[in-house]
Structures are given as C-alpha cells and as structure tokens.
Amino acid sequence: MATRETQALIIDTALALFNRHGSSNISTNRIAAECGISRGNLHYHFRNKAEIVYAIFQRISHAMHDEWPADHLEPTLEHMAKMYVRQSMLILEFEFFYREMAALLRQDSLLRRRYREHRERRIDAICRFLTTLAEQGIMDFGADRAMLRPVVIATWIISDNWPNFVEFSGREFDAEAICQGYDMILHMLAPYITVGFEDVTRTSHETIHALVAELPRDALASAG
C-alpha cells in the first residue's frame, strides 16, 4: 500500500480499538496485527503510540478548523443547535480522546500545546458566531460584553463533557439526551437571548430531533 493509505489504515484501526478498549489497553503490536502489517511497518510510519494519538487529534482539529469555518455566515439559533449536534457527533467519533483527555494531555507536552492552540481558535470562532448573532439582534450582551468569552468557555466545557456524563449515568445517548445537554447551554445563554426563550427551546429540540433522525442507524451506538 502507498504510505498515505497505510497511515490512514493505522489511524482508522487504532481509533476503533481505542474507542472500544481505551488507548492504554492497546499496544502498537495489537494495532499492527489488526491492520495486517508488521510491527516494523507500523513503526516506520509512527514511532510510538503517542504519535498515533497525535495523528488522531489532528483529525479532530482538521474537522473543526477546516470544515467548520463558516458558522458565522449562518447567524441563527437553529444553526447553533446544528453546531451542538455536530460537536456531539465528533465527540462520539473520537470518544476515547474525550474520555481520556486529561491523562493524554498530561502525558504529551506537544499534544497539550496543540490542544491549547486548537481550543483557543475554536473558542474565538464561537465568540465570532455569537457576536454575529448579536449583530443580527438575536442576542444582546450589552454591558455584559466582557462575559462573552467566559460564557463561551462554559458552554465548551458542557459540550465536551456531556456525552461522558450521559454514558457514565448508564443512559442512552439519543436525541433526548442531546436536547438535555443543549438545554444547559441555552440556559447559560438565556440572559442574552432577545427572542422568546420557550420558542427557542422548542425550535432547537425540533432541529436536534430532525438531525438525529437523519443520522446512520449506528451513529449513536458507541455511546451509553
């Protein structure tokens, strides 16, 4: 196989194994065996497991920064609900990383630095989106303008951790669970939303249920 194809195979295989068993329980030998390649071939592409984890994180970063750059061009509360579903699906796709994030970042200074850069860029993008909502008259931060960034950080923490909370509660991560997590974000933003909050909540739930209904049948199967 070509180098890129082999690297993609290794990353795809490692991601599936990490999600299923946890990264600490999977060796590079196991990954190589599952790929059907030699250990030496794997180490030609990735010197160790940390490099594989870093390559997986680059996929996360790519999705957020290269595929989600135009959110501010759709400044609606409906699109904000779509953003939350999209983030939830990303977390499920890379669930081991979000489960093990604290340990992974502590172990790898390069990964920690890149994560910080990634986080700051994404927080800036969300601030830009909410600022555009304010320009459209949908939100109003007024004298609380300085609260924009802290509020965004708080919503980031909720969205990153809600799937884990649902899973460890023994519940199914379905459309209703996604709505409950999103409700927390809406309540944090409620003081700044200028339109009817009940209407926003109802429309958001309808949007989330419609989006989840369009997902592949097994899209939520890995959670809960």
Rank of each mutant, 00 (worst) to 15 (best):
I158K: 02
G142K: 09
A102T: 05
H209V: 10
S159Y: 00
M147H: 02
A175E: 09
Y192K: 10
A210F: 03
I153T: 08
M139P: 04
M139N: 02
A146V: 10
G142N: 09
P163V: 04
G142D: 13
I123H: 02
Y182G: 01
C179L: 04
I123W: 02
H187G: 00
L211Q: 12
L111T: 08
A143K: 05
V152Y: 04
G170V: 04
E117K: 05
I193K: 06
W162I: 09
G142P: 02
M147K: 12
H205G: 15
V166F: 03
G196Q: 12
G170H: 07
Q107G: 12
R121Y: 01
A154N: 04
L110A: 11
Y115R: 01
L130M: 14
P163H: 02
S159A: 15
R145K: 08
D199S: 13
E172L: 11
N164Y: 07
Q136C: 12
N164D: 08
D174H: 06
I158L: 13
S204T: 15
I157S: 06
A103K: 05
L104R: 01
E120A: 11
D174A: 08
A190Y: 04
I193S: 08
R114P: 00
R121P: 00
L104M: 07
M147N: 10
A146L: 11
E117M: 06
D124G: 11
M184K: 08
Y115P: 00
I138Y: 08
E176I: 06
R114L: 09
R128A: 14
N161T: 11
I126T: 14
H205V: 00
I123C: 03
T132E: 15
F129Q: 07
R122N: 14
I208Q: 06
D199G: 01
Q180S: 10
M101W: 00
P191T: 10
T131D: 13
F168Y: 13
L130P: 09
T203F: 01
R106K: 10
R122V: 07
L186V: 14
L186D: 11
I153N: 00
Y192A: 11
A177C: 09
Q136I: 01
E167L: 02
S169H: 01
D183L: 15
E167A: 14
R113S: 14
M184N: 09
G181N: 05
T131S: 13
L133A: 11
A143M: 02
L211F: 04
M139K: 03
Q180E: 15
H209A: 14
T203V: 04
D183S: 10
A125S: 15
E167V: 04
F173M: 07
A134V: 04
D108L: 06
S109A: 13
A134G: 12
R121E: 10
E117H: 09
D144P: 00
T132W: 00
L133W: 09
I123R: 08
R202N: 06
L104D: 01
T155Y: 01
P163Q: 06
L189P: 11
Y115D: 01
R112W: 03
I178A: 10
L130Q: 10
T207M: 13
V166A: 04
F129I: 09
Y182R: 09
C179H: 00
M184C: 15
T207V: 15
D174P: 06
R171C: 08
